[in-house]
Design a protein around this nucleic acid. Structure first.
Length: 592
RNA sequence: GGAGUGGUAGUUCAGUUGGUUAGAAUGCUGCCCUGUCACGGCAGAGGUCGCGGGUUCGAGUCCCGUCCACUCCGCCA
């Protein structure tokens, strides 16, 4: 039916007869001559219809945008002065001999070259949206990424193994998507949040190296970089420690970026402890392209009269930190107010600042509502420590450390975006030495920072129990330009340690047996030391394509309320289906 | 659960202090046009102003409720 793709035509094919199939991208009718830009997945070719051939000419006259055509014709050089440098096929054109309308098309709901179409319109007509070259490119890059990863892991001896989609609900973590069981009425499967336990079991089976490109499901609210179903590159190995695992993964990511988009990541990747990341950036996934850093000033503020600063400075869980913004003195009152409102999102009750109009003029050169509350000696130390220069602005956060870190960490990102501060292209970073647990104030118990199967850096249960809050884990995250690309850990591999870890999370032995008994049992039947990692494939592709939204790298994504405008999913179940499943609705859905 | 922004022609948007027949661009339809590629020219069609209620002589505009989309907080081991 077709001899070439439209986009493959070039002057090496001069005088060749070709057969093309594709969509009418654009028709230009000059009365005596008609041009049709025919589009397929490889590109666009210009087809010329000459009135010398009345029959094809009449058909070309009748076609409309997005009609599907088959055309035969002869490749020829375009006349002098009519070549199009913007088109890869712009040196040549196809003089049409025959044209067949394979299918008509209604007028598309939006123009393919319109870059600014509302998301729900695009999603309702996703099959048209995906015709756009950018979307096609994203899908193909995604396929290339998956292929490169498979090739690499296959070379390294990893075995691709599928794990169940219908599985057991896990109590920790995100909300599960539940699937009712017909044969066990009243019982439910859960769709996997990740294949975590299965991949550990595969290590106990002696598979040694496993990977899977796998869909995961989490029923939580959506964001620009979060979908309810998303794809992970999931990996697990036996007999490797964290140094070896991160090394082999680093090699994989470097190779991936090189082969997929010809990007050279700086090597070796930076490494930073969790504590250092929080201290310097207020955040455990800092964007290292951003030069702004927090400056610790708690010690300077302990004695000052100003309660807003001295209070947090003397609280055990308080923090006072400064954020110097080079050139920030030019920010207007309104801009500063906007930032104050912004940090209020993160619990900050205010945003103190000092404008440095002239660093050499002492207090006279400064401008700030809080200046009068601070002794001159402290101000001097402050300026030294923040290395403030004329023209800078210094923001302050003073509150519980958590609030200061969240607020100034977010402000740091916001300022970099607003003031165009990002430097360099790619800044990968391993974050290591995570705490095992963080205390959950609401539930009055420990939460796992990573997950309940992560090994601690101590070897005995006694050491872990002695001071859980201080215990570090053998977890690692890979952060790229401020986005968490992946994370993993070395796992617990003895029943004792696993039970202890679960107990600290408020899961007693009986509950542990009910929920994870199969895992704990397996740990007792010859479990190798093992660990792994999972990468967010969608986010990787999103970064590589420079997309603002994860939806642009997923063929059929969901909206922010987790619905699909194309299929109208989710939709009510029929009474018959519900009866078979033994389900009665507490509240009937609204009638359409 | 919360904060914000938006919803007007197929699409992207404008719409003043509440006041006559709701506009623009693009797309669409018809006619004209033999070298265009954002083709051009002329003419034309196209509106439940998201939905429901209220205020008013009068509502796209004001008020209340509601739905949808997007961004963010909470949430996401």
């Amino acid at each position: 039916m077709r001899s070439h793709y439209c986009g493959q035509l070039n002057s090496s094919l001069l005088d060749r007869e070709v057969e093309l199939c594709g969509w009418v991208h654009k028709r230009r009718d000059h009365g005596g001559i008609i041009f049709i830009d025919l589009r397929d997945r490889e590109g666009i070719a210009q087809i010329v219809f000459d009135p010398d051939r009345p029959e094809p000419f009449a058909i070309a006259d009748s076609v409309r945008n997005e009609y599907v055509l088959r055309i035969t014709g002869k490749i020829r050089q375009r006349p002098e002065g009519t070549m199009n440098k913007d088109l890869p096929t712009g040196e040549i054109e196809v003089l049409a001999q025959t044209i067949e309308i394979l299918n008509k098309a209604r007028t598309p709901p939006f123009q393919l070259d319109d870059e600014n179409v509302a998301d729900d319109t695009r999603l309702r007509y996703r099959y048209i949206d995906l015709r756009r070259p950018q979307m096609l490119h994203n899908m193909r890059l995604r396929a290339r990424v998956a292929r490169i990863l498979r090739n690499y892991l296959d070379e390294k001896g990893f075995i691709e193994i599928e794990t169940p989609m219908l599985t057991k609900a896990t109590p920790e973590g995100a909300r599960d998507y539940l699937v009712p069981s017909r044969t066990h009425a009243g019982s439910f499967f859960a769709l996997p949040q990740s294949p975590q336990l299965f991949k550990q079991l595969l290590m106990m089976s002696g598979m040694d190296r496993y990977y899977q490109i796998v869909r995961c499901f989490r029923d939580e609210d959506l964001r620009a970089d979060r979908q309810p179903e998303f794809t992970q590159l999931d990996i697990e190995t036996s007999f490797m420690d964290e140094t070896q695992i991160t090394a082999i993964m680093e090699e994989m990511i470097i190779k991936l970026f090189k082969e997929a988009i010809d990007a050279d990541l700086p090597t070796p990747f930076s490494r930073m402890t969790y504590a250092e990341a929080i201290y310097r950036f207020g955040n455990d996934r800092p964007d290292l392209r951003n030069p702004l850093e927090l400056t610790e000033v708690s010690d300077l503020m302990k004695e000052v009269e100003f309660k807003v600063f001295s209070g947090p400075a003397t609280m055990p869980d308080g923090r006072v930190a400064a954020l110097r913004v080079p050139g920030g003195a030019k920010l207007s009152r309104k801009e500063i107010d906007d930032y104050t409102n912004y940090v209020a999102n993160f619990g900050a009750r205010g945003l103190a600042y000092i404008k440095v109009n002239d660093i050499n003029a002492g207090t006279e050169g400064l401008q700030s509502p809080v200046l009068k509350f601070l002794p001159e000696s402290i101000i001097k130390l402050l300026l030294e420590r923040t290395t403030a220069q004329t023209g800078d602005l210094i923001f302050f956060g003073a509150d519980k450390a958590r609030v200061v870190n969240d607020a100034l960490g977010a402000l740091r990102n916001r300022l970099a975006a607003d003031m165009n501060l990002l430097q360099g292209q790619w800044r990968p970073l391993w974050i290591v030495d995570f705490p095992m647990f963080e205390y959950n104030e609401d539930e009055k118990r420990w939460d796992a920072l990573h997950h309940p199967f992560t090994a601690p850096q101590v070897n005995t249960t006694a050491e872990l129990e002695a001071d859980p809050g201080q215990c570090l884990s053998r977890a690692y995250d890979l952060v790229l330009n401020g986005i968490e690309m992946g994370g993993g850990s070395v796992r617990i591999n003895t029943p004792d340690m696993q039970r202890t870890a679960l107990r600290l999370l408020g899961i007693d032995d009986q509950a542990a047996d009910e929920k994870f008994g199969f895992l704990i049992n397996a740990l007792d039947y010859g479990c190798p030391p093992h660990g792994g990692i999972a990468f967010g494939l969608d986010r990787l592709v999103m970064m590589m394509t420079g997309s603002d939204s994860i939806r642009d790298v997923i063929a059929f994504p969901k909206t922010q309320t987790a619905s699909c405008p194309l299929t109208s999913a989710p939709s009510p179940a029929s009474p018959k289906q519900l009866r078979e499943l033994g389900i009665k609705l507490a509240k009937l859905p609204k009638q359409e």
